[in-house]
Design a protein around this nucleic acid. Structure first.
Lengths: 255, 255
DNA sequence: CCTATTATTTCGGTGTACCTAAATAAATTA
DNA sequence: TAATTTATTTAGGTACACCGAAATAATAGG
């Protein structure tokens, strides 16, 4: 419960802890956190102690890690930075959606609050980034679209792609080559679970041609996450993560 | 003479070493370097050893520090980053010239080469930044305008402001309030050296009104540096630093 | 030329964020 | 439930970039 000298590592920890609960509500464990940050478990233990000292997380030994109110505030401000930066890079500097993640990852720790605000103004305060993720506002309010898991959708289901995870550039390029992006209308034409892997076949709406359908091979553990709107009406409704985790009800986060 | 894992500290050291010799040619000493970086002398000694190991500087104990060819290359790339960022922030994000320095200082360590290039393209590969400083090209070539020291100019001399140091926001705001910026036409209406300080009175060209002239009180030690073109013809000719150091001949640096 | 002053380097330490290996707690399963 | 496996934390150590204080070299003054 001390002051708050924040560092770029701290920002990363908090952001990852937040992200883990963005689309499902189980809190993250040390090991998962270590894996996502690419550091050793022991580093996490140590750092979590520090985060707790600064009142950014709640944590009892051997139990999962949860953000406090002020941890959530910090996390949402990092998420806002990241997503605004991605939007800006795509709209103003001609980046493609598969390039932006890494660059934003570095920049989010370096830019000032002024920079963020000027950028947001110039972009017209967007509420979704190029991957379809919601952008928190300056006060840390974020509205998650209501959602269902893609792996619960039946063949024949149509909808718009609402969101595609920005973590796998290779997947993004693959989807791009097949004409799939945010807001693309899709239809689930088939599905085949096997060997712990869920395979979803999707094609531009209307096509029933299984051979020409995009084959999405979805391992567990966050390898891939594609999101699909379950009704074709408005963008930004009824989406849910493909990989791991249980179905959760729609929610809104704010500090 | 080892490989080259660069860090943001190393980048700062090298950039400051370069800057010191940009407008005069005496090499920097440990103490001066420490002062400009805001670190202790002992930190500089240590770091300079490391820079030498990486073949970025030449240095014999107790003598001044000079960049090697590869040190100069790195320095010019940092200067390019910094000046392009300043230009971009002013032109694209509505920063004023007195705000940009700090922001660029942070960003220059974080952005990728791709980012720099896209930014440069969008700006049309400018060769001067908002303060009038020359921007090195992608190959590390920079052309310094030929120059005379402002403190050698006589009263009555007219010219355009070619360059104003970006290190003192307060000065920049002061000048701005008095309508002085890069490319403003000025006339030296008087001068008064006293107590180790040089005072220059300048006014918009034509005005002979000493009272309404801008009074520039120029201490030594890099407190202020204003640059004035000594002839009104083209921008980018005959400029020189105001503070400390001896007159040097025009030169061009490149790695 | 020798001494006093100033510049520079060396030495012993600090905080941050990592790591591996060892110890301990929790969960699984036999 | 006891034993094994897995998760987590603790212990001991590293690299980086910094610091103040002490030692040493260079410079300036008498």
């Amino acid at each position: 419960m001390k002051p708050t000298p924040t560092s770029s590592s701290i920002e990363d920890y908090v952001k990852v802890i937040y992200s883990f609960t963005e689309w499902q509500d189980k809190p993250i464990t040390s090991t998962q956190l270590a894996a996502r940050l690419g550091v050793a478990n022991s580093s996490v233990s140590e750092m979590v102690r520090k985060l707790k000292d600064q009142d950014l997380v709640e944590h009892e030994p051997y139990s999962p890690i949860r953000l406090t109110r002020s941890g959530l505030r910090l996390a949402l401000s990092m998420v806002r930075r990241h997503r605004l930066l991605e939007t800006y890079l795509v709209r103003e500097l001609g980046y493609t959606w598969d390039e932006v993640h890494e660059e934003a990852e570095l920049l989010e720790h370096a830019v000032s609050e002024t920079f963020i605000q000027r950028m947001a103004d110039k972009l017209g305060n967007p509420t979704r980034d190029p991957h379809g993720d919601p952008i928190p506002d300056a006060d840390g309010h974020i509205t998650m679209p209501p959602s269902h898991r893609l792996d619960e959708l039946d063949a024949g289901h149509r909808g718009r792609v609402s969101r595609i995870s920005d973590h796998n550039p290779e997947l993004l390029r693959y989807l791009d080559e097949h004409g799939i992006g945010v807001d693309t209308e899709l239809e689930i034409v088939g599905r085949r679970p096997f060997g712990g892997t869920l395979e979803v076949l999707a094609a531009p709406a209307g096509s029933k041609d299984m051979d020409r359908a995009v084959r999405l091979d979805l391992g567990d553990e966050a390898a891939v996450s594609l999101w699909v709107v379950t009704d074709g009406s408005h963008p930004g409704c009824t989406v849910q993560e493909l990989t791991g985790g249980s179905l959760m009800s729609p929610h809104t986060a704010s500090p």
